Simulated scan of single mutants.
Amino acid sequence: MKKVDWCQLATDLETICQTRGGWTERGGTDVAKRALIEILGEDVLVNAVDHAVTLAPGSELAVSVLSLLQPRAAMARCIEVFRTSTDPETAAGAIWLLQRIADRSAVEWLPEVLSSPNALVRAWGIGIVDHLLIAQGVIELHEAEPFIEAGLRDAEETVRERAKQVLEMIEHEEMVEKRRLGQAS
C-alpha cells in the first residue's frame, strides 16, 4: 500500500503555512478532493474514464468516484474520447460521463459538444447544461440560455425534447422559489 507523506501533500496543496509559533492549516471537503486527486494520480483517473465509458462491470463505481472528485484530467479525457472516437456510441458515452462529472470549467466545451454531428452527443451536451445549472447551480441562467436555445432549435427531436425538459425544470425551480419567498414574507 502506498504511504502518503501528508506534510508534503499539505505543502504541495498549499494548505499548511509556517508561522512564528509553528504552523497553521486549513482543510475541508474541497481540500480533501484535491488531495485524493493527487494521491490517485492522473493515470488512475484517466483509466476510470476509459472504464466508465465501456459500461463494463465496475463502471458505476468509477463514475461515482469521478463524480465525487470532478478531476479536470477526467473531464479532459472525456473530451479527448469524444473528439477521437470513431464509434458514435463511444463518443456519446464520453459526453454522458462528462455530464455526470462536469464542473463549471466544462462550459468551455459546450459550443463544440452542441455542434457535434452526433445527435446523442448534443442531447448529452444539454444534459451538461442541466447538470451545471440545476443540479450543481454553478452557472447562471443567462450563461445557460444560449445553449438551451441552441437545443430548442436543434434538428433532432431528442435534443429539442431534452432542452424543453431543462426549461421545464427551470420554470419549476422558479415557481418553488417564488412560493418559498412568498411564505417567508
Rank of each mutant, 00 (worst) to 15 (best):
L152F: 00
W109E: 15
S64D: 12
D50I: 08
E112M: 12
L120Q: 12
W109F: 15
I126P: 02
V44I: 15
A48Q: 08
A150S: 12
P146V: 05
D130K: 10
V44K: 11
P117R: 10
A62K: 07
V65W: 07
V65P: 04
M169F: 04
E89Q: 14
A155K: 12
I79E: 02
R153T: 03
L45T: 05
H131Q: 15
V121L: 01
L132V: 06
A94N: 04
L167R: 13
S85E: 00
D103E: 13
A163T: 04
S116C: 11
P57Q: 09
D154R: 01
I148D: 02
G93E: 09
W124L: 00
R83M: 05
R72S: 11
A73W: 03
H142V: 05
E171N: 09
L141M: 11
S85W: 00
L69C: 11
E140F: 04
L97S: 10
D87N: 15
Q136P: 00
P111Y: 06
Q99V: 03
I101Q: 02
L120T: 13
G137F: 01
R160V: 01
P111K: 09
A52H: 03
K164Q: 13
E168H: 10
T86Q: 15
G41H: 04
A106N: 09
A150K: 07
G41N: 04
F82T: 00
Q165P: 00
I101S: 06
A163F: 01
G93F: 07
L167Y: 02
S67L: 05
T84L: 13
A123W: 07
A76E: 15
H131F: 07
D130V: 02
A135M: 12
E171T: 05
P146E: 06
E140Y: 05
H172W: 14
R77S: 06
E42N: 09
A150E: 01
H172Y: 14
A155T: 11
N118L: 10
L69Q: 08
A102E: 12
G151S: 03
V121E: 00
P88Q: 13
S115D: 14
I139L: 08
L167I: 12
E156P: 03
P71F: 09
A102S: 15
Q70P: 04
I134R: 06
A123K: 15
L97G: 10
N47C: 06
S59K: 09
G137Y: 06
A123L: 11
R100N: 12
S67H: 10
L66R: 07
A56H: 07
T54N: 07
P71A: 11
A56V: 09
T90L: 11
E168L: 13
V44G: 01
L45Y: 05
R83K: 11
L55I: 11
I126C: 00
V81R: 08
I128Q: 06
I126M: 08
I139N: 03
P71T: 10
D103K: 08
R83V: 01
M169Q: 13
G127W: 02
R153F: 03
E145N: 03
E171I: 04
V46M: 10
F82D: 05
A91M: 02
V166A: 03
S116A: 12
V65N: 08
Q136G: 06
